[in-house]
């Protein structure tokens, strides 16, 4: 296990470097002078332009700029937002709470709903329950998250008035976004849980468990569900990307002050240091979470460690 851990950790380093290089180059791949792009169509004095250029460090050689950027990032200095001059790290940090809360809640929704739907439809296979559950799942796979979110707002906030429309703070502002975000992932999960449970139901050890007179609920809980959990872990790992892009959209729809919304707003405002910082941060979190998923998978399934 330790050896595997070390190997995975070492493999992360080139990824991190490449990501940082990409994020750094982003600013320089923009056609034209980043400082001029920043001002867009508004008139600007050459002095102000030069000032912004210096602020961005554009007057120095590219390689020096990259190492500066990397060194800064390692020290936690991601530069300052062009618009309001607050440190980028500060901006990102103030948004983490909201995003983490949403991600966690959505994760619970996705896991609970996906496992429930998948299990029910597998145990009641070829009945109307199965058909209905899979229809819900199919809808979830095909539904754009921003539309689901808008519909939830319309029904539960505007018509029924149960939840506030937007914002952050308090559980009642969390329910709708978490459901919208979790539902889409739960659909994929439900389909996979269904097929893996169906597969397990035919395994000899399940037949054995039944034939020794174990009650059906116990068979399901001890023998079937346990194996279905491996599928859950795998899919949740694979769903991270979906969850992430969903979070960017969900935060925008519900106007939650999270990292995803920060990123979109920064792109629209052409605040490049802020875009770089936010992208770097999200990529880092993504890589770390991926690592944790991989490790927990290796822990659950010893065969992986010896590959």
């Amino acid at each position: 296990m330790l050896q595997y851990l070390a190997k995975r950790l070492l493999l992360t380093i080139p990824t991190l470097l490449a990501v940082s290089l990409l994020v750094f180059l982003m600013l320089h791949l923009v056609p034209g002078d980043p400082a001029i792009i920043f001002f867009g169509d508004q008139p600007v004095t050459p002095e102000r332009l030069e000032q912004v250029r210096r602020q961005m460090g554009l007057h120095r050689p590219l390689l020096v700029q990259y190492f500066d950027f990397l060194g800064g990032a390692l020290r936690g200095d991601l530069g300052r937002s062009i618009h309001n001059s607050t440190p980028v790290l500060e901006e990102v940090r103030s948004r983490i709470g909201s995003s983490a809360q949403l991600a966690l809640a959505a994760f619970v929704v996705a896991g609970g709903l996906g496992l429930g739907l998948g299990l029910v439809s597998a145990l009641r296979r070829s009945t109307w329950v199965d058909a209905a559950a899979m229809l819900v799942a199919l809808g979830g796979v095909s539904m754009p998250i921003f539309w689901l979110a808008a519909m939830l707002i319309f029904v539960f906030s505007i018509k029924l008035g149960w939840f506030p429309v937007t914002g952050f703070g308090g559980w009642n502002r969390l329910v709708l976004p978490a459901f919208a975000l979790g539902f889409v992932s739960s659909a994929t999960l439900a389909r996979l849980v269904r097929s893996s449970v169906l597969e397990v139901l035919w395994q000899p050890y399940v037949t054995t468990a039944r034939s020794k007179g174990l009650r059906e609920t116990l068979v399901v809980r001890r023998h079937v569900l346990k194996n279905a959990f491996i599928a859950v872990v795998t899919v949740m790992g694979l769903q991270l990307g979906t969850l992430l892009s969903g979070a960017v959209i969900t935060e925008t729809v519900f106007a939650r002050p999270g990292v995803g919304k920060l990123m979109v707003d920064a792109i629209l405002a052409k605040d490049f240091p802020l875009v770089q910082g936010a992208v770097l941060f999200v990529a880092l979190v993504y890589i770390v979470v991926n690592l944790v998923v991989d490790l927990s998978y290796a822990y659950l399934d010893p065969r992986i460690r010896f590959e």
């Binding site: 982003m26 923009v30 792109i267």
Partner: peptide
């Protein structure tokens, strides 16, 4: 592998940040 470890939405956002919406 690198592109796959980098979430699609981030890559898309980076490309759009570079090229403009």
């Amino acid at each position: 592998d690198l592109m796959l470890t980098f979430p699609g939405i981030l890559l898309a956002l980076v490309i759009i940040a570079i090229l403009g919406p």
